[in-house]
Design a protein around this nucleic acid. Structure first.
Lengths: 114, 114
DNA sequence: GATATAGTTTGCCAATTGGCAAACTATTGT
DNA sequence: ACAATAGTTTGCCAATTGGCAAACTATATC
């Protein structure tokens, strides 16, 4: 499970940047080569490539080079993993507050009853 | 370099650290003061306090000082926001692959039919 | 009033991040 | 053969991060 922790570290870190999230958003519309992905941004290609590397080592995207063009695509497993962790945490919290709400409600009923 | 940091940037950054995620996990079991939260970790209090500050500026936790003790608790709205973004992205992806799967399936049927 | 407790601030440091410019390595097109 | 295209590598820099030790503030407790 220590491995999963590090995976989460890397995935969340990858997501903690608007450029990288935008790339993910773009890739959701379909695979694209590096320069097309880089088009919307003002930064240079080297800087952009670093973002791509971060995304790829996080497992959020994959890429494949054919001739001189590298095509990138989404790999949603890691996205699901991050979402899963968040959902799990929120579920715990939700359960707790639900039980708290139920308790408050029951106290309310008792007050009314007495 | 004044980067306008969106809430998502800050939240995901806050989540991209095992110590901070552990703190969240601990707080899901109920509110706790700083030193109790810090107990499981080997780092010193100043370092731990930095993590708490990151969590608090992200909006993932709130805290309140009473006397000499600061009590921290979870605030799940931001957690839900992050989860929402992820769910949205995955839904887009899922929809796309679902349509793709349907397409492949339909092609399959046509092949079988011909 | 003295002392322990809980947290905070300050100063410092190494490692990482995010960006640039420039040079370089393929491939593809003419 | 030569030039344009697509991407990569290298070297550099400023800002940020994550940690420490030490000094400090404020509140309980004896």
């Amino acid at each position: 499970m220590a491995n999963q922790q590090t995976a989460l570290d890397i995935v969340f870190h990858a997501l903690a940047d608007p450029t990288r999230r935008a790339v993910i958003g773009r890739l959701l519309q379909g695979a694209a080569p590096v320069t097309r992905l880089a088009e919307p941004f003002t930064m240079g290609l080297p800087a952009f490539l670093k973002h791509l590397t971060v995304l790829e080592t996080s497992g959020l995207i994959r890429s494949e080079k054919q001739g001189r063009v590298r095509t990138c695509r989404i790999d949603a497993d890691r996205l699901a993993a991050a979402e899963g962790w968040l959902a799990e945490q929120r579920a715990i919290w939700q359960g707790r507050t639900d039980r708290l709400a139920a308790f408050v409600e029951s106290q309310n009923s008792q007050e009314k009853a007495s």
